[in-house]
């Protein structure tokens, strides 16, 4: 087959993943877009491994490594998502603005001493 077939498939999958990350508001669905992008990169690696006849099998090995890293990333990200859900009551990425760089809020609980804890649990709980 032409080499550009798998490369084109990977490009389109990557673009679909970008669309998913940008358009979704639920944090878990954003993670699904990230998974699509990682898989697109893996298709590239495996295709070039087959094309170049790599004696080190670098492409397939890196694809395996990326799968492992993606598993670690998903485990860690879901722990963070569950923690955010416990402290905020939602996982809407548009409303999670506790770490945004902007002027301190005018409400009395805000002020200048914004600690990490209040930055994590602040805005979502006072809705």
């Amino acid at each position: 087959m032409p080499l550009w077939w798998p490369l084109l498939l990977a490009s389109l999958l990557f673009a679909i993943g970008v669309y998913g990350v940008l358009v979704r508001r639920n944090a878990v669905l954003v993670l699904m877009g990230v998974e699509l992008m990682l898989n697109a990169v893996n298709i590239n690696l495996v295709a070039f491994d087959a094309h170049l006849r790599d004696v080190l099998h670098g492409g397939q090995t890196f694809a395996l490594f990326i799968i492992v890293i993606a598993a670690a990333e998903v485990g860690l990200a879901l722990a963070i998502v569950l923690l955010v859900f416990r402290s905020h009551g939602h996982i809407d990425v548009d409303r999670l603005r506790g770490l945004a760089d902007r002027d301190p809020p005018t409400e009395p609980s805000g002020g200048d001493g914004v600690t990490a804890h209040s930055a994590l649990t602040g805005p979502g709980r006072t809705r």
Partner: peptide, 16 residues
């Protein structure tokens, strides 16, 4: 991405 890969690898066969 598509124009890059298609322009860069047109005519290259992936011999399996």
């Amino acid at each position: 991405l598509a124009t890059t890969v298609v322009a860069g690898f047109t005519g290259v066969r992936l011999d399996l």
